[in-house]
Structures are given as C-alpha cells and as structure tokens.
Design a protein around this nucleic acid. Structure first.
Lengths: 209, 209, 209, 209
DNA sequence: TATGAATGAGGTTTCATTCAT
DNA sequence: GATGAATGAAACCTCATTCAT
C-alpha cells in the first residue's frame, strides 16, 4: 500500500515538473527535490526518466480513451448529437481540470523522439478512426453531409487540440462550458445536414463575442 | 556568394537533422557530419545549436507569413471566398512541399523551452488575430454566421495544423489539392450562412471517400 | 566527515596540479586523474575549475593572514622587534613548508584574469596597509627613521615575495631560519634608527657567505 | 623595410593586447583586429602566439639589460653610489614609461608555463648575480656591511619588482623620481656602512609623507 | 605577400544512472 | 526499502593554426 502511494506521489511530482519545464529541461533532481525523496528511491519505482514520462503519457491517453465512446446510432438523431457532445465535453473536462496534464499531451510530448512521436501518433490515429467511424455512421443516417471523413476527422481533432494547446499555454478564452458549446456548434455546422445544423444553431447562439 | 551557399547548405542539413531526430537528440556532430564540414565551420556561421534552430524556425514562420494575406472585402462574396482559399492553399503549398519544414513547425518546435514556446505562441496568435479579423469582416458582410470568433479561429487554425501534423508524420491522406478543397468546404460549412455554404458545397463535392 | 576528507583530497590534488602546470595548462582531467576520482565527482565538490582555484587561493591568503599580527607597541623596543620577527617568520614558515602553496601565491595566481588580479592586489594592499601602520607606529616611537611609508612597505613586502618566489621556483638559498634572520637584519638596517639597527646587527651576523 | 614596419606594428598591438587581457585571454583575433591585419598575415610574421609573446618578453628583458651596468669601483665612493642610482633609475625609466611593458614583465609573464617561468627565472637570476657581484665589490671597499649577498640581492630586486607591480596595477604612488629616490635611500640604509648611509640619508629626506 | 574561410583537437560541464551503505 | 555519493559518457563550444585563392 505504502508503495503504491509513493509511486503515485512520484508520478504526480514528475507530471508537474515535466509540465513546467518540458521533458529535457526537467531533471531527475527536479523531480526528487519536489517529491522530497532520495535519488535512489526514484529508481526503485521507475526504470528511467523515459519510463516515468511514458507512464504519465499512457495515463493521459487512458484518461481520454475513458472519456470517448463510440457513437451508438440506435438512440436517434438527438441521441447521436448528445453522444457527440458527451465525447467532446468529456475530453475537455478531463484536460481542463488540470493544466499540467493538458500541457503534457499537447505540448511536452510532441517531437520528443521517434518512439514517443509514434506513440502519440497512434493515439491520435485511434481517435481519428473513431471519429471517422462516427462520421460514416452519421452519413448512413443522413445526418452528416457527404465529405472526406478522414479530412473532417482531422479537422475536428485539430480544432480540439488547438483549443487545448491555448488553454495549456494560458491564452485567454471563454469560460469552459461556453467555449465547448461554441466549439460544438462549429462542428455541427461543419458536419451536419442543414436541417439538423439549423436546429442546433438556433438552440444555442446568444451573442457573437 | 560562396558564403551564402555554405550557410544555406548548413541550414538545410540542420533542418533535416532536426526534423529526423528532434532538437535535443540532434547533435552538432550530426549536423556537421551530414554537411561534411568541420566542427568549427559550423560555428563560423551560427552562434550555437540554439540559434540555427531559431533561424530555421524564423524562416518557416516568415514563409507562412508571406503566404497569408488579410482578406480584402471589397471584391464581393466570391472574392472573399477566393482569398480564403488562397490563404489556405498558400500555407499548404509552402509546407507540403517539404516534410522536414512542416515537422519543424508542427512538431519539433513545440515544447522546446519557454523562449521557443513563446515565439511559436506569438506566431500562432498573430495568425489567430488575422483569422478573427477576417471573421468579423465576414460577419459584417453577413457571410459568416454569428459565432465566437476566437473559438472559431482556433478551430480553423487547429484543423490546418492537425492535417499538417499528419502530413509531417507520414499519415496517408488524399492528394494535396483534393485535401485542401475538402478542408475548405469543411470551413465554409462551419462558418458561412447557409445560402453561401450550399453554393460552395454544391460546386465541389465529388465523392465521399 | 567522509565528505570533508574527499574535498580536502581534491583540493590537495588540484593544488599540486596547478602548482606544476599553471592554471591554464592544468585540466580537470589532470586533477581527477591524480585524485583517482571520476569527472562528475569533481563537480560534486566544486562548481568549476575557477572556483577550486579561488578556494585554494583563499586558503593561502587566510593562511598568511593568520600568521600576520598588527604590531603592539606597548611592549617596548625589544617587543616591537620581536613582533616584526614573528610576522616574517610566520609567513615563511607557512609558505616554506610547501612549495606548491608558495607557487600558487607568488606565481600561478598572478596575471590570471582581472578578477583574480583584483583579489591578489587587495590581499597585498591589506598587507601593505598593515606594514604602513606598523611603520607609522615605529616612527612615533622614534625607532623608525623618516621615510615614505608606502614605498618602504612595498620594499619590505617585495623583498619577502621575491625570496618566496625563488624558494617556490627552487633556487638554492640559505636554510630557512638563517635566511629569515638575514632578511630581518636587512629590514632592520633599512628602517630603524642607527642606535637600534646597530644593536640588532651586532647580535646576529655570523658570516658573509 | 615594409616588412620590418609591419612586424613592429604587430608586436606593438600584441603587447597591448597581452598587457590588457593577459596571455591566455588574449586571442589572435584580438591582436589582428587591433592591427587591422588578416589572420594569415599574422602567421607570416610569427610562428605562433607563443613566439610573439616570447619575442615581446625578450625585448623587455633586453630593454632592462641595456639599462643595467655592472658597477665600476674605480670611481670612488660617490661614483659607486651614482652607478647604483643610475641602474635603478634606468630600470624604472624604461618600465614606467609604458605600463604595458611593465605589466608584461611583472604580471603577465609570471606562471605561464614551465618554459616561460624558466626564461623569467634566468633573467632574474642574472640580475641577482649582477647585484651580488656589486655587493661583493661594495664589501671589499668597506662600503657595504657584512650580509648574505644573495638574500640582500633578492631583497633589493624584490623591492623594485613590487613597486613596478603596483605601478603596473595602477596603485597610487609618489611621482616617479621621488619614489625612486625614496627607494634608493631605503637600499642605501639597508646596505651601506653607517658613515655612508647617514651621508646619503641627510642629503635627501624632506618629509615623511 | 595578403587574405580569411576552414579545420579539429581539446577543454569544460551536465546529468541519467548505479551501487555501497 | 531508502539513501545520496560516485560515475563517466557525451554534449557544446573555442581558438590556434593551416591553406587555397
């Protein structure tokens, strides 16, 4: 039990250090200083600096996978829209809660080295596939307009990532829920057939900032 | 004249090395080995590893700034659309031509250190402002629907970056022009009032992949 | 305890290397090879090559300051002479014991760079002030002849340094105590009123070499 | 003729640079920048950085040798005193005229490396021998008191060097001639039999600073 | 003779990892 | 398990010297 706690504490400290300084600038010294632990202790829990980072990255990835569900078409138009919303909300909820985690994913893990790039890429590709399948489904239901599903999926994913990036970097933005609503309306307009799109659009727009 | 050539050659080699290995994993040795130049020669042209990278990044940023123009509303609806297209095309043209350059911008320069992050962030913020102004203009002309311009601008920028990221990482995608067309239609649907959006949509969709 | 020993050992080895090769020719490799220690270990104890040297220099300076006392006039003529003697003896004792230390002070630290030059100069200036005050005192007691105290102080300091320099460089000289006696008689003649000077001179001269 | 001029110019610039920055901190770039000459040109005139410095040092040494004469006893007591004076004056005249030269000798050439140390030491040893022979002569003429000639010679040399060192380092001192007079009186008291010493002392002391 | 671009040996320093206590 | 001193590979950068023009 003790062991698991310590491990979690170390992971937590490592996350903060990586988020603040970036992978390379972060040193083992930074981590153990923050964790108030001896150097050797760190290596009792993790094989190397690389592996801590990898585990943190895996955690973030799992966190997001846990929030994203394949869309189930059996619940009608409204159900599909609700599920789409739930996915985007989930991701933002998970990542806005903690800037460190967001930074790790959208900034610090990028371009580290071929292996990490690969892992990141695979994660994003899985998300893209999921999105593509959802889009295909939407098209079958005649909710989604004809489009290149891969390109559209990337556009959606990219729009989410960009906002997370700016959140992580501290850019000023509308408060969480309003921002997500706004983003969702953007997606709806871009994807859905006019009949649906107009309905959603009417439901929500208040001002124009 | 000789000097400029050498410098360009070194920059070119540095770009390739950075793109392949990432900033930190790339060593001066890698660069000079590739350039077939002695160690000191490198420092004859650049102050440090950091400054070569910075110059490369500045070049990429300049490259993109050169391709992006503020939208001029005086030429009517079609003119505005054409200008939007030109901007996106320009950016893709500049970056698709060379995977290394694209990688530098969307992958290797991210999360390097506070100074580079700042530079990158400022670059993206300038692009966002430009986009926001264009959106405001579109709204005045009743071309663009009511929306939070900042969020929309980020969504657009993010969609472009994501596609570039995947291009840089080698993901399979539709051939250049088709992809850009597809992406533009996505933007049009997301931004424009239905009357315009439908016109554009009708004009272009061929298949659904 | 262990730590202090290691540190002392490293300082000792560094001293020897600096004395043998000079500051610039001495490399960290030389020091750690002699100390049979890994490269990193050196940096565990000292921040840089510069700081080891500085600490060594500080040590030598402290060593000498510890041996030199302001002259107390309350103990009469003989007392003053005895104190003068004690000071000169003290300095020689401290530095003759170890050629490396002497070399560091009179040879290796000279002309290194503006900062070290400054430190050295300040040290010598403090000694000069002390000498000047002692001379002023001697003049008040009518023991010391009228003279420019600054020039006389420099002459005395210089005579001591020159002998130390030759000792450090291995020039053959009379054995320690005889040499110091001889030097003291030189000073006495140069400084004191004839009545005192003759008394001291009579007391000591044995041969003329 | 042209060649000799250029060489002299380079030597001059090198002297200034060495005096200002010290041997190691001085770079070939510093020298050629000051001389407004290309890098290769430097090597047309000198084999290496080391050899320029060596030639400068040789020049200084020659300069001093030219000013110092063995004392000729045939011209009586006053003549001997006058010659002693002339030697010390000569050395100061040569070195006070130019701080760069003084710095080179008393500060920058010290502790450079074994070879330079050797050269410097030999130079000082020659001066010492000369002094020792003069002292022996003085003793034969019953002008100089019984003393260890080597120690006395070192004391005299050291007193001169110390003053030059402080001049070179910018310490405030009495104006040239007064300072040399003062120093000479110091030497006279330290060396000469009372009868002579008193005569000289009476002749010059004005104040006590 | 003069130039200055090119060279590369060599130095200092960092820091992830190990291991004896 | 915990500690933290010790390790040493590897990186960056400088600068005296060379050499083609």
């Amino acid at each position: 039990m003790r062991r698991a706690e310590r491990r979690a504490h170390l992971l937590r400290c490592a996350l903060e250090v990586f988020a603040e300084k970036g992978y390379h600038a972060a040193s083992i010294s930074d981590i153990i200083t923050r964790a108030k632990v001896a150097r050797g202790t760190f290596y009792l829990y993790f094989e190397s600096k690389r592996t801590v980072f990898e585990q943190l990255l895996d955690e973030v990835i799992a966190l997001i996978h846990a929030r994203v569900r394949r869309i189930d078409p059996s619940r009608g138009t409204e159900g599909v829209l609700a599920q789409l919303e739930a996915n985007v909300y989930g991701v933002f909820e998970a990542l806005l809660a903690e800037r460190s985690t967001a930074r790790l994913l959208v900034s610090q893990a990028v371009g580290l080295d071929p292996a990490f790039d690969q892992k990141l890429l695979e994660f994003f590709r899985r998300l893209l596939e999921l999105l593509e399948r959802s889009l295909a489904l939407g098209q079958e239901m005649h909710l989604v307009v004809p489009l290149d599903r891969r390109v559209a999926a990337m556009a959606i994913l990219g729009s989410i990532k960009e906002i997370l990036y700016h959140v992580a970097m501290g850019t000023e933005l509308p408060p969480g829920p309003a921002m997500v609503d706004e983003l969702l309306r953007f997606h709806v307009r871009a994807l859905f057939v006019p009949a649906i799109a107009e309905r959603v659009q009417a439901r929500g727009t208040r001002g124009t900032r």
